[in-house]
Simulated assay, not measured.
Amino acid sequence: MKNNQEFINKMEHDIESSALPEAIKRKLIANLLLLKGRKVNLLITGATGCGKSSTINALFDADVSKVGVGVDPETMDIERYELGNLILWDSPGLGDGKEADNRHARNLTKKLLERDSDGNPLIDLVLVILDGSSRDMGTSFELISNVIVPNLGEDKGRILVAVNQADMAMKGRGWDRENNKPEPELESFLEEKVESVKRRIKESTGVDVDPIYYSAGYKDGDKPQRPYNLTKLLYQIIHYTPKEKRTIYVNNINRKREMWKDDDELKDYRNSIMDDIAESISECADIGADVGESLGSCFGSFGRAVGRFGGRIIGGAFGAIKSCVKSVFGGLFGW
């Protein structure tokens, strides 16, 4: 599928051809129609060398040298990449000198304060990438404390923090290259690092964040290193994106299966991603408890009664939607 509308069209077809009651079909399809025209604006920032471009390429298989488009001259330092309904904003962080830092801060502030046609903040989510190979993160904390958080408005949950280059956190020591994961000593070091980041941000801004560590991967000569915890990063991005926009990521995710092979084992991020996307579609369906759990059989092999959100049982309809989402992700995640 090439774009968000194709994914929505497939979902609409599956709903229309099902044996669901007409009233429920109408509710689900009305919600799908709302999703067609939506866009996600994801702003990615971090100090020079933190790996923003490699992260974009890993997540979305986007050649940033080819998809960049022009931006407002007043924010010319911020690169805009348009991938269908997904808009990526690549903003320089601080650390390029006092004059450049002041310019970057002004431009970033302007973008964070920008509103869409409905009067809502244009930027749905800010991803701040930290350099895991560096001990000095002072400029990144300054960026978060003095520029990003003060300009998020009331919704302080629009910020994610991720530590890239986890494999180089101890100058390359402790990384199991054969299995592409940290050894116990490095894993402990990384856990302490993200806890330190979380604590420092809380102390300086009062905002709770849940940082993760990952590696976007790279090429070592002709031999590429696969990413690590990329699925976990994708889950965080989707989870903290407004529910009504989560489906937009479906058709932009990197289709190379090897990119998603290696993660920690703390959570089933793949199923969690599908839960969040299915919830996005079913959130406004408002299916009552009296019909919820009886709907699974209407979809035959696609349906099963699962899920409770906000006290509303959406049972089989949610299960059917999740199964359809799973069919889209099947090849990607190896199902």
Rank of each mutant, 00 (worst) to 15 (best):
N4W: 01
E6T: 08
I8N: 00
N9P: 04
H13Q: 12
D14Y: 10
E16W: 03
A19E: 13
P21K: 01
L34H: 05
R38V: 07
V40R: 07
I44R: 00
G49D: 00
G51Q: 02
G51H: 02
K52L: 02
S53H: 04
T55K: 00
T55G: 00
T55D: 10
I56D: 11
L59G: 01
V67W: 08
V67H: 09
V71S: 13
V71C: 02
T75Y: 09
M76S: 15
E79Y: 04
E82Y: 00
L83I: 12
L83E: 11
L83K: 04
G84P: 14
L88P: 12
L94E: 13
G95E: 09
D96F: 10
E99F: 08
A100N: 13
A100G: 07
R103L: 15
H104E: 12
L108D: 07
T109E: 14
K111Y: 09
R115I: 12
D116A: 01
P121K: 09
D124E: 14
G132H: 05
S134D: 14
R135E: 15
D136T: 11
D136P: 08
M137L: 15
T139L: 04
S140K: 05
I144C: 06
P150W: 14
N151Q: 11
K156Q: 15
R158H: 05
L160A: 03
V161H: 06
V161A: 02
V163A: 05
K171L: 10
K171G: 09
G174T: 06
N179H: 14
N180I: 13
E183P: 02
E185S: 13
L190R: 02
E192K: 07
D208I: 07
D208T: 08
D210N: 13
I212L: 01
S215D: 08
Y218C: 00
K223V: 08
K232G: 01
L234D: 07
Y235K: 04
Q236T: 00
I238F: 09
N252A: 11
N254G: 12
N254T: 12
R257K: 15
D262K: 07
D263S: 12
Y269K: 04
R270Y: 14
N271E: 14
M274E: 05
M274H: 03
D275G: 00
D275A: 08
D275T: 02
E283T: 08
C284W: 11
I287K: 02
D290M: 10
D290T: 15
V291W: 10
E293C: 13
S294Y: 11
G296L: 06
G300T: 12
S301C: 05
F302P: 01
F302E: 06
G310E: 15
A317C: 14
I321C: 06
F329Q: 05
